[in-house]
Simulated assay, not measured.
Amino acid sequence: MRLSHVIKVLSIAALFSAIATVDFATLIQPTSTLPIGNNLMAAGRRRLSFRTGVRPSLYRVGGFSRGSECGNQQMLTAVVPPPQAQESLSAQKAAVDKTTATHPTFFVYLPSLPAGTAQFTLQDEAGGKELYNVEFKVAGKPGIVGISLPASAPALQVGQKYFWQMAVACDPSQRSKLSSISSWVERVNSPTAAKDDRISTLAEQGIWYDVVTLVALQRYQKPSDRAATEDWEALMQDAGLPQFKQTAIVQIVKN
């Protein structure tokens, strides 16, 4: 039985048939509209400083059931800043993080689950329109997985908020047992900044999806580079995600 037959999502659309796992270096293409020419490892550059700030929040809409049915196994975790002290978020709400990209990348921590199938969906704010839905294979290796919104999907619009979800079967032989997570993203206008200080401007303004993608790309391309590692560790610390300072990026899915 296909995972999509187990999980009910709003406005089910036909699944994309072509699923591919690609090298992280090919992740950021022109469709993402992100600036990748920044040299994060420039000599003498000050420490990358990310400011989450106070974010808007929205209720989680229908779709994958929230939580995990994987027993004592660690749950999936959306790699987004957790609720801040100055934010008042109930269990039914999630913070909305920002991107300037038309086709951003979403990061999820995948625990050590058996190799199998995962499903990712993206919906509009009202939950009435599904913009993207893909199933893909996971290798069963613990680490961070990136799901890149392909050029074939509708471009995110400035000022609009979108709800994304991901679910993984705990055991390929029991497709009804799932671990799932969800979060929100809003596309915003790109801030004005000096070309050589673009990444710092994005970080200081709390544009999460852009910053984490750029820093992750540098870390993946130069895993032994001290500055790349320091940028990643600083970002995880500032964002309230210290548990991922040493976590490897194990897979990028792009259709």
Rank of each mutant, 00 (worst) to 15 (best):
residue 25 A to F: 02
residue 26 T to H: 15
residue 26 T to K: 15
residue 27 L to W: 07
residue 27 L to P: 02
residue 28 I to S: 09
residue 28 I to L: 15
residue 28 I to H: 06
residue 31 T to C: 11
residue 31 T to Q: 14
residue 32 S to I: 10
residue 32 S to T: 15
residue 33 T to N: 07
residue 34 L to E: 04
residue 34 L to I: 14
residue 34 L to T: 08
residue 34 L to V: 10
residue 35 P to Y: 02
residue 35 P to D: 08
residue 35 P to F: 04
residue 36 I to A: 01
residue 37 G to M: 01
residue 37 G to N: 06
residue 37 G to A: 09
residue 38 N to C: 14
residue 39 N to G: 12
residue 40 L to Q: 02
residue 40 L to I: 11
residue 41 M to T: 03
residue 41 M to C: 00
residue 42 A to Y: 02
residue 42 A to E: 10
residue 42 A to D: 05
residue 44 G to D: 04
residue 45 R to F: 03
residue 46 R to F: 04
residue 46 R to H: 07
residue 46 R to P: 09
residue 46 R to D: 08
residue 47 R to L: 08
residue 48 L to T: 07
residue 48 L to R: 03
residue 49 S to Y: 04
residue 49 S to Q: 06
residue 50 F to R: 01
residue 50 F to W: 03
residue 50 F to T: 02
residue 50 F to S: 06
residue 50 F to Q: 05
residue 51 R to Y: 06
residue 51 R to S: 13
residue 51 R to F: 07
residue 51 R to T: 08
residue 52 T to A: 15
residue 54 V to G: 12
residue 55 R to E: 04
residue 55 R to I: 01
residue 56 P to N: 05
residue 56 P to S: 05
residue 57 S to G: 09
residue 58 L to W: 00
residue 59 Y to N: 10
residue 59 Y to E: 12
residue 60 R to L: 13
residue 60 R to I: 12
residue 61 V to K: 06
residue 61 V to I: 15
residue 62 G to M: 10
residue 62 G to N: 09
residue 63 G to Y: 09
residue 63 G to P: 06
residue 63 G to Q: 06
residue 64 F to T: 13
residue 64 F to K: 00
residue 64 F to I: 10
residue 65 S to C: 12
residue 65 S to D: 15
residue 67 G to K: 03
residue 67 G to M: 01
residue 69 E to C: 06
residue 69 E to V: 06
residue 70 C to W: 03
residue 70 C to H: 03
residue 73 Q to I: 02
residue 73 Q to H: 03
residue 74 Q to W: 10
residue 75 M to V: 01
residue 76 L to Y: 08
residue 76 L to N: 00
residue 77 T to D: 01
residue 77 T to N: 09
residue 77 T to H: 01
residue 78 A to V: 11
residue 79 V to T: 00
residue 80 V to M: 14
residue 80 V to C: 12
residue 81 P to T: 08
residue 82 P to D: 06
residue 83 P to I: 09
residue 84 Q to E: 13
residue 84 Q to W: 04
residue 84 Q to V: 11
residue 84 Q to L: 07
residue 84 Q to S: 10
residue 85 A to N: 09
residue 85 A to M: 15
residue 85 A to R: 12
residue 86 Q to G: 15
residue 86 Q to D: 14
residue 86 Q to I: 08
residue 87 E to N: 02
residue 87 E to G: 05
residue 88 S to Q: 12
residue 89 L to F: 05
residue 89 L to E: 03
residue 89 L to Y: 12
residue 90 S to F: 03
residue 90 S to V: 03
residue 91 A to R: 10
residue 92 Q to H: 08
residue 93 K to W: 07
residue 93 K to A: 12
residue 94 A to R: 15
residue 94 A to N: 04
residue 94 A to D: 10
residue 95 A to L: 12
residue 95 A to R: 08
